[in-house]
Amino acid sequence: MSTDEITAGHLQELRRGTVVLACLVRLRTPDYGYALLESLNALGITVDANTLYPLLRRLEKQGLLTSEWNTDEARPRKFYRTSAEGEGLAAALTADWHLIDEALTRLTTGDEA
């Protein structure tokens, strides 16, 4: 395994949880799978379609997202929206994200006290 592959693997691992948070925040405005994928990737939160679609279903099953089929347009599309529980989780994840960031900053600056 090359250094690049190892780096890519660890980066993927590091980003895994952040995709959930990004989805919950982004879906405060309802949207469908492909549009979400595009907008996340445009923001630099790279996520694979093979990861995102199953993730949306799982979050819906856990009650963190709600969904609705939109049939107004030419093609029916499933629109996801963050639920109240999803908002709660987003707040908890964001708080934790900041804690980790602060801890890492203290570690890198050497100010561990």
Partner: peptide
């Protein structure tokens, strides 16, 4: 339905 939407 989901998969059909995704493929389209």
């Amino acid at each position: 339905r989901d998969l059909d939407e995704r493929i389209r």
